[in-house]
């Protein structure tokens, strides 16, 4: 049975490593639903958060093959209920839209949407939450005209364990390679 999983990978910060990791998904014909990568708390270590929909057997094998790549420090996977996650969405709407009644203002208040920037021509809004949350806001803003929209991949933190804890301590001791 297919399920949603979040894969968390810690790697060296090296050119091409993203490609090496994604080929493992390609080989097994697994589609990446979302992918976020940025520097982790350790110098030179990157953290990937990848969400996929597949069978557990597949994600388990995938994680092992991700783990064994030279440059991977750790790879784990989590079920939906084992993680807390968020996605961020940015919306660019026309400033004029705010001058036609209070409807837009009410939407922003009820969703606790942040206003990031106000310019004469446009306003940039930020919404953090699950995909459903940002999607609901998208639908509500749509009638007002959305000039541009972007949604990030998932960032997630596990409920069940502290990933990378052991490794972190030993890595800090080891010579950086």
């Amino acid at each position: 049975m297919k399920e949603k999983f979040t894969i968390c990978i810690f790697t060296e910060n090296q050119v091409g490593l993203l490609h090496r990791l994604t080929t493992i998904f390609t080989r097994r014909h697994i589609n990446i639903e979302s992918l976020t990568t940025s520097e982790a708390e350790l110098d030179g270590v990157h953290r990937f958060t990848i969400s996929v929909e597949c069978e557990e057997e597949q994600v388990e094998k995938l994680s092992k093959q991700l783990s064994k790549q030279v440059g991977t420090l750790e790879a784990d996977y989590y079920r939906e209920e084992e993680t807390v996650w968020q996605e961020i969405a940015l919306f660019k709407v026309s400033t004029n839209a705010f001058f036609n009644g209070t409807q837009l203002e009410e939407i922003i208040r009820s969703h606790r949407t942040r206003i990031l920037e106000i310019e004469p021509n446009y306003v940039v809004l930020e919404q953090t939450g699950y995909k459903e949350d940002t999607q609901t806001l998208f639908e509500k803003l749509k009638p007002f005209g959305i000039l541009e929209f972007v949604r990030s991949g998932r960032v997630s933190i596990s409920k069940t364990n502290v990933p990378f804890k052991k490794e972190k301590e030993t890595i800090l001791k080891k010579e950086k390679h």
Binding site: V15, G16, H19, R20, T23, T26, R27, V70, G71, H177
Partner: peptide
């Protein structure tokens, strides 16, 4: 590097001479 990604255990592109000894040893 991209072409051989899926058929190598590891690959690396050296663009500076100073990288040679470390990368070759690795």
């Amino acid at each position: 590097i991209s072409i051989t990604m899926a058929v190598t255990k590891w690959n690396y592109q050296i663009t500076k001479a100073s990288e040679i000894p470390d990368v070759m040893a690795k």
